[in-house]
């Protein structure tokens, strides 16, 4: 493959190809492609252990892929020259267990990276935090500590924290599965709002109803391989593959 000086601009914001990852002897990702167009909401579904989390974590190199390529906005993240801290700033991540910093207030949780990575002044960072808190519907929680918030509120802060850095894309790993059912709605409402604002997202989740109504693309992963992908309607109403059908049948009961 020749390296041309001016690489053709990809139509994808995130372009992961042939990603492989093993933990010891077990290969968890066996050559996975994940293509995300700008402004789209991609849903990652699949049974437990299929490699959804691992794939997301490879996309910002929290997990180091063994091979493959991950191109974000025409920058090769796996190249040794890539500034991974700068890249991570542009890739937001939201975790199943929120991972808010328990020793910092909500405001500090949001502003830490703004101040230390972006280099914003404290006043500017605080203003940005207030903006984000308003966006996720928690404008009065700046001074609270994470332990004083409900799970749903914590996760919305988690989203605000990654959103504050103005990332090009946000990866969410089961953002609602640690929540009580009555708290799920508030988080999904925020996600939907972000989608309407044109923010690119990849979400691994078991919220099939939400996927059907909000996802632009659904990717079904099983055993470390992409089995099927397409628009939500096709995957849920007209799945082509046996494994997809079986998985969806299981999920519905």
């Amino acid at each position: 493959m020749s390296s041309t000086a001016a690489a053709p601009v990809s139509r994808y914001l995130l372009e992961a190809r042939g990603v492989r990852k093993s933990f010891g002897p077990t290969e968890v990702l066996k050559g996975v492609d994940l293509l995300v167009e700008p402004g789209k909401l991609v849903f990652l579904i699949g049974p437990s252990g299929s490699g959804k989390s691992t794939l997301l974590r490879c996309c910002n190199r929290l997990e180091e892929p063994d091979s493959g390529s991950i191109i974000m906005d025409d920058v090769d993240l796996l190249s040794p020259r890539a500034d991974i801290n700068a890249a991570r700033r542009q890739i937001g991540m939201v975790f199943q267990s929120f991972n808010l910093y328990p020793h910092l207030t909500v405001q500090k949780n949001i502003t830490l990276a703004l101040r230390k990575v972006v280099g914003m002044s404290t006043a500017d960072a605080n203003a940005r935090a207030a903006e984000m808190l308003a966006l996720v519907g928690l404008p009065d929680k700046a001074a609270s500590y994470p332990a004083q918030l409900s799970g749903g509120q914590q996760q919305r802060i988690g989203i605000a924290r990654s959103l504050a850095l103005n990332p090009k894309i946000i990866l969410m790993d089961e953002p609602t599965s640690a929540l009580d059912p009555e708290l799920v709605g508030s988080v999904l409402a925020v996600v939907k709002d972000l989608r309407d604002r044109g923010i690119t997202m990849v979400i691994a989740s078991h919220e099939m109803n939400f996927a059907r109504e909000a996802a632009d693309k659904v990717v079904f992963l099983d055993g470390g391989l992409v089995i099927e992908e397409g628009c939500a309607e096709d995957i849920f109403l007209r799945p082509q593959e046996d494994r997809t059908r079986r998985f969806l049948a299981q999920i519905r009961h």
Binding site: L62, R89, S97, A113, V117
Partner: peptide
């Protein structure tokens, strides 16, 4: 300290040293 704390910090672009120092 749970592993997720480090991961959350690194995912916002904090360096290893900053993660240690602040998180």
């Amino acid at each position: 300290v749970p592993k997720g704390q480090r991961e959350a910090a690194r995912s916002t672009g904090l360096s290893a040293t900053q993660t240690l120092l602040y998180v």
